[in-house]
């Protein structure tokens, strides 16, 4: 039921990949370092299976930036999830290596909100392009928790679109995950519209 065809998957992956390229160029205009962003794969899964597939240990400290999105066909909550230590690596990149560690923690919320906002907007923008729909997005919020509580509030009938994102920064490799949470009827409408727009 939560499957999509390979063609659909490829179309989405490609579209998001292009949008990540745009997000990367935004980052590159903001900082000295060169960042590349790529999407190796996407998955549609149930909320129970999500953690397993993300390969995040239950006790792992994570942080995420969340935005609400609503279009004509569906509404969604989108989360960009990072392991805590990788998030700090990103903050360091944006604020400079010499930022004191204790300062970094207080600046993390703000910096990550903007970084996440850019990525989530790019991602939803690309979906909006393939679905040929205007999808309005809210402002970002930033939270921290343990991996095991990430999807604790999700309902059984929700479908999660997992988008794996690799940050390529010099020698470092940072991984982030976009999780698009779609209620079942939103997912069905999403699929229908995807099918329709791909056939046009």
């Amino acid at each position: 039921m939560i499957d999509i065809t390979d063609l659909q998957r490829d179309a989405i992956t490609e579209a998001i990949n292009i949008s990540m390229g745009r997000a990367a160029s935004t980052f590159n205009s903001m900082i000295q370092e060169h960042i590349s962003l790529s999407v190796p794969k996407i998955n549609f899964v149930s909320s129970e299976a999500a953690l397993e597939i993300l390969k995040l240990p239950h006790e792992k400290e994570v942080c995420y930036i969340m935005q609400k999105f609503s279009g004509t066909f569906f509404t969604s909550e989108a989360m960009l999830v990072f392991a805590q230590d990788e998030s700090m690596e990103l903050v360091k990149l944006f604020l400079g290596e010499d930022t004191p560690v204790e300062e970094m923690a207080t600046l993390e919320r703000e910096a990550m909100s903007e970084i996440g906002n850019i990525i989530l907007n790019a991602c939803i923008g690309s979906l909006s392009n393939i679905l040929k729909d205007r999808i309005a997005g809210s402002l970002p919020t930033f939270r921290k928790c343990k991996a095991q509580t990430l999807f604790i509030n999700e309902k059984k009938n929700e479908v999660l679109l997992l988008i794996f994102i690799d940050f390529g920064i010099e020698s470092k490799a940072i991984k982030g995950y976009i999780v698009l949470i779609l209620e079942l009827d939103s997912f069905i409408k999403f699929k229908e519209q995807l099918l329709k727009s791909l056939m046009e």
Binding site: A111, S113, E114, N117, N121, I124, G125, A136, G137
Partner: peptide, 17 residues
């Protein structure tokens, strides 16, 4: 542009800018 063309919301932090 993102707001007008795509109805997207953006956040610019004082920590970065």
């Amino acid at each position: 542009q993102a707001a007008i063309e795509y109805s997207q919301s953006s956040f610019l932090s004082h920590t970065i800018h």
